[in-house]
Design a protein around this nucleic acid. Structure first.
Lengths: 221, 221
DNA sequence: ATAGTTTATTTGGGCTCCCAAATTTTTTCT
DNA sequence: AGAAAAAATTTGGGAGCCCAAATAAACTAT
């Protein structure tokens, strides 16, 4: 047993990686503290320790960036997370939108060998149940072409690829709407005044708010 | 994330349970500290906190005993541990004597539902890869009849059931001898002077020391 | 430019589990 | 019984991650 610092570290790495991917706003103490729901003082202290271990780099403009090693580790955590999610859905029968929490625990299991065996056992899946790509052993991750439903062409039919938000409430809502990765969606029309979006899914007409439509990522059918 | 006290607690519960099962010597601070390789001061502090949570009982003679709740929790941890071991061996192809370490991490994953699904997925196995029985959902555990090879009858043939030691070196040694749960063993003779035991396994004659033979548990063929 | 506001950092402290060393209690042995 | 040894407990302190509140620095807006 002994020290759990690795677990904390992994959460920080994941968080920084996610914020970097968002490309909206700088990644600094404040942003990180807000994302992790922690006090900026705690974050600063931790980030400094991680800088000493060359996991992150503290730039002169107070920006935080992952080093190559940090990125490698972050991708390995994401890899573990997504493979466990596939396992939970494919093998244990969990609903696709109910596995995030468990995967957050499983992702900390420390064994690359275990993850490689799991990947092979699952048949080398390319994406997780949320439609997100799974990095390979070397840390390479495919980035499938996709666009937000809120800017999709009226009249066209798309296939849902993944989602830009992992919030539980959002995923629950999608579940009730019967929308998941792979679902066929036809855009009927975009409303000017509120940005909402009328679509047809499984033969039913749905009205999606701008926020919801914006977080649904699709690709051509 | 937040507090990991549960993980520490679970290790203490497991350790106390194991010492109670051994039935050799009292379970007190010293014994626990020795088993967990911790300072007695640390153990005392922790055990007191667990007593306040009614997980253990501190007797007047300084003996430590699990309460009903503590026992229930300990059994649930053992259940998780053994089911994950079955998974690692049956599904991921690990050697039976190389999974203990990983299972020690996996056993801390906090979800009864997950474990129940895992159990069903594995086909409700009765024993783990080491031959140890798996407690059911309600905490009931079968205790298969078995005796130590060191007191087995000369000339008789037995089936290896399980092992009384989980030390890595011991399990490695067993692996090299091709002895695992289910292996047929015929006792040739016990040596008076050093307690060693000559057996025949898979057509080969083996000389087992008293210590090794004593830790191999068998049942009639 | 300067007052006002946000952002960043420092300071002092909390909680949990851990330890070494000093102390007290209990056991063991002559 | 009395001395020596072992066991049990107390004391004081460390490391890790966390926080609130007090500063200090940077940015905004008039």
């Amino acid at each position: 047993m002994s020290h759990f610092s690795r677990l904390y570290e992994e959460n920080y790495l994941k968080a920084i990686y996610k914020l970097e991917q968002r490309r909206v706003g700088k990644v600094n103490n404040i942003a990180l503290a807000r994302y992790l729901d922690l006090n900026p003082a705690s974050v600063l202290e931790m980030v400094r320790k991680m800088a000493e271990k060359t996991l992150v780099q503290l730039n002169p403009d107070k920006t935080i960036a992952l080093t190559d090693e940090g990125t490698r580790l972050a991708l390995s955590i994401i890899r573990r997370h997504r493979l466990w999610e596939v396992f939970l859905v494919e093998k244990l029968g969990y609903p696709w939108n109910a596995v995030h929490h468990l995967a957050e625990q499983l992702e900390h299991i420390d064994s690359d060998d275990l993850v490689d065996r799991l990947e092979s056992y699952l048949g080398f899946p390319a994406v997780d149940p949320h439609g997100d790509p799974i990095p390979d052993k070397a840390g390479h991750m495919a980035t499938p072409e996709s666009l937000s439903l809120s800017v999709a062409t009226e009249g066209a039919t798309y296939i849902v690829r993944s989602f830009a938000d992992t919030d539980d409430a959002f995923l629950d809502y999608l579940g009730r709407l019967q929308i998941r990765p792979g679902t066929r969606v036809t855009v009927v029309e975009h409303q000017e005044y509120d940005g909402s979006c009328q679509v047809e899914v499984n033969g039913t007409a749905l009205q999606l708010s701008e926020k919801v439509a914006g977080n649904i990522l699709v690709a051509g059918a």
